[in-house]
Amino acid sequence: MILSSMENVVFGYGESPVVNGVSLDIHKGEFLGITGPNGTAKTTVLKILLGLLKPWSGEVRLNQEAFDGEKPVIGYVPQNASAFNSGFPSRVIELVRSGCHSRLGLFGRFGSEQERLVRDSLEQVGMWELRRRRIGELSGGQKQRVCIARALVQCPNVLILDEPTTGMDVRSRTALYRLMKHQVRHHGVTVVMVTHGLEEAGRYLDRVITLERLETESVETSANIGKTAADDRWEMG
């Protein structure tokens, strides 16, 4: 089932478009990779999908049926999520708890169910042991993992990750791909991930969309490449 689609989308920041006639579909319950060389507007395409940028022309559709008529919960880990203000006064656990805010609303009580979700999310990214640490004291890769835990704690229908492995070592990167694959297989989450590391991530992805810069200096999708299913063993280091 198509979850979201983009048709003939044109967008630019100045006078000329950086995205020109891009069309793509996202299927429910898939682990989709978006890749392409630098400057192919991968982040821009994600932001258009998320509704953060309005296209000059073309259509972006969200299939409400795919969410059983309910409001979709989207977990988003932006590019350079780890570059957040290091002086932000929070410990790891406090920041991840804040991922529950959207579900709790203004006055909802933070109960044992939320505590369990926070613990699960932190354990999944291997950060439970460091939950009391100030976020400013973490390494770039650790910060990135905390941001992923904060997205997971929302129990999202869709997870959108923009180059989430920045600053991570090989072991953490592999663990992340396995975790995302697990989310897709066992929790029905749709994961869209912008990545440069196809040689590593490729075996875990269900499908890859490659953005390429054309002669016109604008970007189009070039191909949808089917991938083999990866094993779903997962563990975070």
Partner: peptide, 12 residues
């Protein structure tokens, strides 16, 4: 949420 990350807050 807004203070930590305005963009992510908007999406949530």
């Amino acid at each position: 949420d807004l203070t930590f990350d305005e963009e992510a807050a908007g999406i949530s």
